[in-house]
Structures are given as C-alpha cells and as structure tokens.
Design a protein around this nucleic acid. Structure first.
Length: 426
RNA sequence: GGAGAGAUGGCUGAGUGGAUGAAAGCGACCGCCUCGAAAGCGGCUGUGCCCUCAUGGGUACCGCAGGUUCAAAUCCUGCUCUCUCCGCCA
C-alpha cells in the first residue's frame, strides 16, 4: 500500500503498472478526493491554530475580574471554531476512507526485469533441472491410482470426515508427510533459516499486512465468532512476526522457516485438473520468509529460489523454474519465480513453490522498519517469501517419478532415515 | 468465563486538565580527547500530514475508537492486548 504522497507523485508509473497487472483503479475519483482533502485540511488547521491562540489567552485571563467580559467573548468564538472543526473533520474522515479504499486497490509495481504479458504463456522458463523419465518401459500411473493400490491415500474417508479436497494419508503415506516436513525444516535450518512455529489462526491486521485483505477475503476460511482467519500460507503469520517493529540493521537479513498447514477455499475449483492431491482445502507447506535491506532484496530473491530448489535436488525430482510475467504476478509482488516439478503420471508441471519479492509493499502495510545506523533513520525493510516447499504436489511428484513397474514406489534416499529406514512403499 | 492492575518515543521510565513532542536515563549519531579504542566531556537525536520554489511555518500523534471541554497523555465510555488471582481444560 502506497502513501497518498507517493501515489500523487508517481501516478503515471502506477497507472501503467496497474494495467500491466490487469488491475482497475479509479484514478479520476482519487484525484478529485485528493484535492478536496487538501482544501479541508487547510481549513481545519487554520481554525485550529486560531482556536489554540484563543485557548492560551483564555487560560491567562480567566481569573482576572476586569477582563471577564472579553473572556466570555473569546469563549464564544473558540466554541465556534471548535464546532467548525468538528464538522469538517467528520467530512475529512469520510474522504480519507474513500481515498484509502482506492489506494488499497493499487497493486505493487513489477520490477523492470519482469516480462510483460497477461497469461501463463508469457511466463519465461529460466531453468530446467533433472531428467524427465519418459523412456520408462511401463505406463506410469497417476498418483491417485498409486495411492489407492498401496493404501497410502484415502480420499473417500477424507470426504466423509470433512468434504471433498480433504485427503487422508495412511500408513507410509502419513509417515511420508511427516518425513518431508522434518527433512525440509532440517535442510533450511542447516542453511541459516531460523525455525519458527506460528499460529494458523490470525487476525485481520495480519491478513492486511501481507495483502490477502481486503481483496481475497472470500477465498479464506473465517471464524465468525471471533473474527479469525485460517491462514492460506505461513507467509501471513511469519511476515507478521515483525509487524509494527523497528529492527536494528545489524540483525538483517532475517531468515525464517516455518511448517504450517494451509487452508484455502479455492472457490470454484471443481472440475478439470483437480483430481487427487493437486488442489486441496487443507495442505501442508514449509515456508521461507526473509526480511532484508532494500538494496539486497533482488539478490536475496535469487538465493531464496536456490534454497527451494535444494529441496527438489535432494529429492532428485525434475523441475523447471519460471519467471512470471506481469499479469501473473500477485497483487503484492514485484517479482516472482515459480518452481514446477514434473509429474509423469498425469504428465503435468506442478507448481510446488512460488518465490516472491514484495519490496516494501508488505512492510509499508505492516509498518515493518529497520534503523539505518549510518544515517540514524528508519526505513521500510523488504520482505520476501517462498515455499520451501508445498507438500501434496511434492508427494505427487515422488509417487509418480519413483514409481516402479511392479506398482511399488521407491523412497528418495534423503527421506529414508526419516522413515524408519524403509526403501520402498509396496 | 470472573475480578483487579496496566499500555507513553529505538529501549527503560516520569508525567492526573492549560505554553508537554512530552522529564530523566540508556542507546544511536556528530565532535573533542587518543597512535587507535574504551572511559570522560560537549552537542544532537520521533513520525505523518498541510502550506511554501526554498529557508521556514502550521497541525496531528502518549494501545485503538468515540465522548466531555475554549483546551485532553491527563477526565468519561467502549474495544484490543499484557500481567496477577480465581474458574475451566489437554
């Protein structure tokens, strides 16, 4: 969220970038409201100044007998100012609310290195890793069939307990979930990320800071009784760790890793490409979040992607990295890379990680600052986050890539110690 | 869930109606001292908004939102959070 001043001074840039992201903003109304606002502020402050003067005089003279009548006059006049101020202020409040609404609808500006475009076809593949196992001499089954055969996935019972898109993992399926979480957290911890465990229910302010609110309210589960939201990603609680804080510069950069379940309504998700574990209302994810000095944030984005890639490399899963075009960028992001793992059973690339630099967009919303020791000033940090990585689709990739002709599934070597030493799921 | 106490600047902490953006200390920054550093000494040190080409001026902000008043960090109401005690619970 931008300050009104910044919007005023950079209207053309913001207009252009909003268009690139496909967001409609009521620019004309904003300009009109801005002018109105400034007129009222001038009026109010002038009167407040006069009122202040009078107040001081009143306090000087109130006890003197010979000036009683003039004090009465001053009181009357001060009262008049007070009423005028009150009236104009309520008008001002209304105008500022409307201005805020419009400013909130302005998306973050894409970085110059982001390719222009509106759809997935305009994303750019910047990296391919691993070999796509197409040459196998048997038909690779989709993961839901493997899951059913080995008994590690139970969709009908998940539907019975909760509803569709709530899976149940059984036996080594459940163990695999636990193993992946531990493996990923251990990996990131070794690489300098501080592990944190955070609430999965958060308040409105937290959702606002990261940009889910106000735009995406309908996509999230909400507890009406006490106005809590179920998090759609650990990005929300972890980024909000430092909301309303001033971090001393020597503490930067801060790296965090957190495991949480994630909850998404995914309204209208029924239909194509939603079978199995591809799209769920509840899923597990290990998330990486960075708080950094502004001048380093684009380098930090590159190393964040690399950190997520390490998970896939260790699991020996083929993947590619995409640089998202402007139209595919989320509302709050300046630049974003997606990592997609190859699923040979369903013959699809699956997004398992999304790594974004938000620059100061979230920091401004959440007042996350740092103190620049050289200048003694505070400034907003840059925040970044990336999945490191999302579990269900990774499980899809494992089940399909590690499938054997006899229907069994080999366990990736790095996970075996986490799974009691077994080598395959039969 | 019930009762009580509290929320002040980067931090600790004074301030109970009028000139308080707010004492004091710490920290940070600048300077002196020093070969350099520490200590010591001196200085300086919040943010937003409005007006001004600028120097500068004005205004707001003491958890949040209202109210009383000519005037509120200070009084009143509601809310949020923290702490203590009780209840309940894994």
């Amino acid at each position: 969220m931008y300050s009104l001043k910044f919007v005023r001074e950079n209207t053309e840039l913001l207009k252009k970038s909003s268009e690139l992201k496909g967001e409609k903003v009521r620019w004309d109304e904003l300009e009109e409201l801005d002018n109105k606002r400034r007129r009222i502020i001038y009026f109010v402050e002038e009167r407040r100044h006069w009122q202040k003067d009078l107040s001081n005089k009143i306090s000087e003279r109130r006890d003197s007998d010979d000036e009683k009548s003039s004090v009465q006059d001053m009181l009357r006049q001060a009262k008049k100012y007070s009423d005028e101020i009150r009236k104009s202020e309520s008008e001002l409040k209304d105008i500022e609310k409307r201005i805020d609404e419009i400013i909130m609808s302005i998306p973050n500006i894409p970085h110059p290195s982001v390719p222009e475009g509106m759809g997935a076809e305009d994303n750019v593949v910047v990296k391919n890793w691993g070999e796509i196992p197409e040459g196998k001499d048997f038909e690779i089954l989709p993961h839901w069939e493997i899951g059913e055969k080995t008994g590690i996935l139970d969709f009908p019972r998940g539907s019975k307990i909760a509803g569709s898109f709530f899976p149940v993992f059984r036996e080594y399926g459940a163990v695999l979930v636990r193993a992946l979480i531990n493996f990923m957290l251990d990996l990131h911890r070794k690489n300098g990320f501080t592990e944190v465990w955070v609430p999965v229910l958060v308040n409105r302010e937290s959702m606002f800071t990261t940009g889910q609110l106000p735009k995406l309210e309908k996509d999230m589960y909400h507890l009406d009784d006490d106005d809590y939201f179920l998090i759609p990603t650990a990005e929300v609680p972890v980024t909000n760790l430092h909301r309303d804080e001033v971090i001393s510069e020597e503490k930067l950069p801060l790296y965090y890793a957190a495991y949480t379940p994630c909850f998404r309504k995914e309204a209208g998700a029924y239909g194509k490409d939603t079978r199995g574990l591809i799209r769920l209302h509840q899923f597990d994810k290990v998330e990486l979040v960075k708080f950094v000095r502004p001048e380093t944030s684009y380098e930090e984005l590159e190393t964040l992607v690399e950190e997520a890639e390490k998970v896939l490399q260790a699991l020996k899963l083929p993947y590619r990295v995409l640089k998202l075009c402007t139209g595919e960028l989320s509302f709050a992001a300046s630049k974003c890379y997606d990592i997609e793992a190859w699923a040979p059973g369903i013959k699809k690339w699956l997004e398992v990680s999304s790594c974004s630099n938000f620059e100061a967009f979230q920091a401004r919303r959440g007042k996350i600052k740092y103190r620049n020791t050289r200048e003694g000033k505070t400034d907003y940090v840059h925040t970044l986050n990336g999945s490191g990585i999302a579990l269900p689709r990774t499980i899809v990739a494992i089940l399909e890539n590690y499938q054997q002709q006899d229907g069994s599934v080999l366990i990736p070597e790095v996970l075996r110690d986490y799974m009691g030493g077994i080598e395959k799921i039969v």
